[in-house]
Simulated scan of single mutants.
Amino acid sequence: MSLLLLSDTRADEIRACLGNWLTSIGDNPSVGYLASSADPTREYFQPIVELYDSLGAQITAFAEPIHGPDCELYEPLFACDIIHLCGGNSFEYLHHLGASGLDERLKAFVAAGGHLVGVSAGAILMTPDIASAVYCGDEPVVPFQITQGLGLVPFGVIPHVQDKAALAARLQDSDVNGDLYLMADTDAIELRGSTLHTTGTPTLLAAE
């Protein structure tokens, strides 16, 4: 099991990080893409297809988490070596995962040794609680108000942070609990088993 948390995928150093991570998993790994909501035009999907192609991996499954629990359309996703959790509204994404039963299936996939890449909202979903998503612009509008994340990593993340010092100062008076990493778009965090590796300079705000 290896989890890779990214703020963005466009920086050269992050593409290199992703390429190295893919190589560590094996030759030509298969990737399943899990959209955050309906994506009928594949607007957000196609650039990720091109990214993985350029790094020697292939997306072989695409799924939108808008169908009922145990929908057979999800099966190809869980046959892949890697599942890619994309960006979007973290609260809406989490709502769809719960309504479709994919939240528990993702946990089982990781427990069985599967690998996940989470980008922006996808990275936030891996954490114990997604309430910190409001600090990168997501809104917990009705009915998307659940905050309990997948709990696959023991810390929170805030992606797309441009001024880490300013946000750290702002968070001192917030109700965000637990260890929290502030991530710029050139940062990455990998959790392989119990070993954590970072790319760039994610800033850890440790719980008191």
Rank of each mutant, 00 (worst) to 15 (best):
L191C: 13
S36G: 15
D39S: 14
D138K: 00
G149P: 11
L152H: 04
A207C: 13
G156I: 04
S30T: 15
A121G: 01
F78G: 09
L191W: 04
A38T: 12
Y74E: 07
Q46S: 14
L77E: 05
D175R: 09
D70M: 02
V49W: 00
A112Y: 04
L171Q: 07
N20C: 09
G122T: 03
T9I: 14
A168S: 15
L77M: 10
P143H: 06
G200Y: 08
I59Y: 00
D179E: 05
A169G: 12
I158E: 02
T147D: 02
G178W: 10
K164H: 13
P40S: 04
G151N: 01
L77C: 10
Q162L: 13
D173H: 12
G101P: 00
I189D: 05
F45W: 13
T60C: 12
T41M: 10
T199Q: 13
C136P: 04
G68K: 06
D179N: 14
V176S: 03
G178K: 07
A121V: 00
Q58C: 13
L6Q: 05
L171W: 06
R10E: 15
Y181H: 09
R105Y: 04
P128T: 10
C136V: 09
T198W: 06
A57E: 05
H84N: 12
C80G: 06
Y33T: 04
F45S: 03
T127M: 09
G68S: 09
A166Q: 14
S132K: 01
D187F: 06
T195N: 06
D8H: 12
Y52F: 14
R15I: 11
N28S: 15
T147Y: 01
C17T: 15
I82A: 05
D175T: 14
S37E: 12
G149A: 10
Q148I: 08
G178A: 12
S24N: 12
I66W: 01
E75K: 14
I158F: 03
G32W: 02
A207V: 12
S54D: 11
I82V: 15
I83V: 15
Y181V: 05
G193H: 01
S90L: 03
S36W: 02
S2Y: 01
L4I: 07
